[in-house]
């Protein structure tokens, strides 16, 4: 269902992406998926990890600025048109997508996508009403191993 995503502010300079990744690595925390938004000046690194509280603590101790955001994980069929069909549903439901990215692993013939909606609760309700498979955090994490 709703997942907690960590977002980090990074300066757009060499080696600045490495600091948080190394900190997580040293703490034995695996990144389940990520996306990086970049501008000329700065970047925003968004991360999904299993234990976000611990990861946040590790990152803050490494001197990073960390924010948390609620995102929604949705399961679609891993076939041509899987995403396009889902976007049709989202469009009809009148939900605006701030951004989205995909998980690096699938579940057999299914793919998992991460959506950032302005109002995640409203989005979850509407998606479920439309019969879309919103993934529970617990089941997602158990599949990620």
């Amino acid at each position: 269902m709703k997942l907690t995503q960590l977002s980090l502010f990074l300066e757009n300079k060499p080696a600045h992406l490495k600091v948080p990744c190394r900190a997580l690595a040293d703490a034995g925390i695996s990144i389940m998926t990520l996306s990086l938004a970049d501008t000329e000046q700065f970047g925003i690194l968004r991360l999904i990890v299993r234990d976000w509280q611990k990861a946040k603590e590790v990152l803050e101790n490494a001197g990073c600025v960390v924010n948390t955001t609620e995102v929604v994980a949705v399961e679609v069929e891993d076939r041509p048109g899987g995403l396009a069909d889902l976007l049709d549903i989202i469009e009809k439901a009148g939900i605006n997508i701030e951004y989205m990215y995909a998980f690096t692993f699938g579940r057999g013939d299914r793919a998992i996508l991460v959506f950032r909606f302005e109002d995640p609760d409203e989005a979850v309700t509407k998606l479920q009403a439309a019969g879309v498979g919103v993934v529970e955090g617990v089941s997602l994490y158990s599949k990620g191993k």
């Binding site: 995503q5 977002s7 502010f9 938004a37 501008t39 700065f42 925003i44 968004r46 600025v65 960390v66 924010n67 955001t69 701030e98 951004y99 950032r116």
Partner: peptide, 15 residues
């Protein structure tokens, strides 16, 4: 210097 209060997860919020 950026603080958690002044930045969000979207590029738009920072800009």
């Amino acid at each position: 210097e950026v603080t958690p209060e002044m930045f969000g997860d979207t590029v738009g919020s920072v800009e």
